[in-house]
Simulated scan of single mutants.
Amino acid sequence: MRVERDLHILLTKFLNKEFLKFLIIGALNFLLTYLIYLLMLMRFNYLFSYGFSYLIGIIFSYFMNTFYVFHEKASIKKAMSFPIIYIVQFLFSEVILYFLVEHINNKILSFAPIIIIIVTVPITFLLSKYIIKGKLIK
């Protein structure tokens, strides 16, 4: 029973307005970067295409999360720290992407970013909140 109660408390703190806004911005960010990824695939290899679209996503994410999700002021310190989250996430994502394409099925190429997003969103939310607000839980 205690485990269930603790899990409920954790989920309640995690699934709040900020997280829902984060998901909305994340969805918009995903659509933007996925479109860029697919367009880039027409001309470049999948790793470069993913990397370029990912960079655009970092910039979009910082500003939208700072102003819309967490209602904070932008700062140079936060802006310089924010990409650290995405560098770690990017490296993790590249490993997942490579594994999916090279070891599972290369036909998954167009859908691989969807799988990557599902795996990395919760961690990214917590790290973003920490950098932008300076705290993880309200």
Rank of each mutant, 00 (worst) to 15 (best):
V3W: 01
R5K: 15
L11Y: 02
T12E: 12
K13W: 00
L15W: 10
K17G: 11
E18A: 07
F19M: 06
F19Y: 14
L20W: 07
I24S: 15
I25Y: 00
A27G: 15
A27Y: 02
F30P: 01
L31V: 14
L31A: 14
L31H: 04
L31G: 13
L32I: 15
Y34Q: 12
L35D: 14
I36C: 08
I36R: 03
Y37I: 07
L38W: 07
L38N: 12
L38K: 13
L38G: 13
L39K: 04
M40G: 06
L41T: 09
L41S: 09
L41G: 10
M42I: 08
R43W: 09
N45M: 07
Y46S: 08
S49W: 05
S49F: 08
S49M: 06
G51K: 04
Y54H: 06
I58R: 00
I58D: 00
I58N: 00
I58P: 05
I58S: 00
F60E: 00
S61H: 04
Y62D: 01
Y62W: 07
F63K: 00
M64L: 14
M64W: 03
M64I: 03
N65L: 06
F67W: 11
F67P: 09
V69W: 07
V69I: 09
F70A: 08
H71R: 09
A74S: 15
A74N: 08
S75R: 08
I76Q: 06
K77N: 13
K78C: 05
A79D: 07
A79N: 09
M80N: 13
M80Y: 12
F82P: 08
F82E: 01
P83Q: 13
P83H: 14
P83D: 14
I84W: 13
I85Y: 03
I85S: 01
Y86V: 04
V88C: 09
Q89D: 10
Q89G: 10
F90G: 02
L91S: 15
F92A: 05
V95P: 03
V95K: 10
I96S: 04
L97D: 01
Y98C: 13
L100V: 14
E102S: 10
H103Y: 15
H103E: 12
I104Y: 13
N106A: 11
K107I: 15
I108Q: 04
I108P: 02
L109D: 00
S110W: 05
I114T: 08
I116R: 00
I117H: 01
I118F: 05
V119L: 11
V119I: 11
V119C: 09
T120L: 06
T120Y: 03
I123P: 01
T124E: 02
L127S: 08
I131C: 11
I132W: 12
K133A: 09
K133V: 13
G134D: 14
G134V: 07
K135S: 15
L136S: 13
I137P: 03
